[in-house]
Amino acid sequence: MLYWNEGGQQCFARWHSENGIAAHQKIQIGDDTLTADVAYRLACEGTAILYRGDFQNARQLLQALVRRVDKPSKKSKRVNKGSKNGETREKTPLDLFNLHRLSQSQRARILGMLLIQIEADHSIPLRRAPDVAQACLEAYGPQTQSYVISLRELLGVISAHEWRKKGVPILVRDDEEIRIHPHYGVFSPIRGEYIELVLKAPLPKALIESSTAFDIGVGTGVLSVVLAIREIQNIIATDQDDRAITCAKENIDRLGLSNQVKIQKTHLFPDGKAALIVCNPPWLPARPSSSLEHAVYDPGSQMLKGFLGGLRKHLLLEGEGWLILSDIAEHLGLRTREELLGWIDAAGLSVIARLDTKPHHPKAFDQTDALYMARSKEITSLWRLGIK
Rank of each mutant, 00 (worst) to 15 (best):
A22M: 05
V38C: 12
Q25P: 10
G53R: 01
D37L: 13
K81R: 13
R78M: 14
G30T: 06
A58C: 09
L34V: 11
P72L: 07
L50G: 05
S73V: 03
A13N: 15
A43E: 09
Q56H: 06
A23C: 05
R14L: 12
D95E: 02
Y40K: 01
R14W: 01
G86F: 04
E90H: 13
Q28D: 12
T47C: 15
Y51W: 13
A58N: 02
D32Y: 12
D32G: 10
F12C: 15
K91E: 08
R41A: 10
V69D: 01
S76C: 04
C11R: 15
I29E: 11
T88M: 15
G7F: 09
T35S: 15
N85P: 13
G53I: 02
K74T: 11
T35N: 04
G86C: 11
T47M: 11
R59P: 05
E18V: 07
N57A: 15
N80Q: 15
R67G: 00
A13E: 11
T88S: 06
N85T: 14
Q60R: 13
P72V: 04
R52C: 03
I49M: 11
N19P: 01
D70T: 05
L61V: 06
A23P: 03
R68T: 00
P93Q: 10
V79I: 06
P72H: 02
C11Y: 09
A39I: 03
C44Q: 14
R89W: 13
S73M: 09
G82E: 14
V66G: 00
R41F: 12
Q56C: 07
A64G: 08
T92H: 06
R52K: 02
G46M: 07
Y40E: 02
L50K: 05
D37C: 09
Q10I: 03
I49D: 01
Q9R: 12
W15V: 01
L65Y: 00
A43Q: 03
Y51G: 06
K91I: 08
Q9W: 04
D31M: 08
N57W: 04
D31V: 12
S73A: 01
K84V: 04
D95C: 05
Q63I: 10
Q60A: 13
K75Y: 11
A13V: 14
K71H: 10
Q56Y: 07
R59D: 10
A23V: 05
D32H: 06
T47S: 14
G30E: 04
I27N: 08
I49Y: 09
L65K: 00
A43R: 07
T92E: 08
P72Q: 06
G82H: 12
F55K: 04
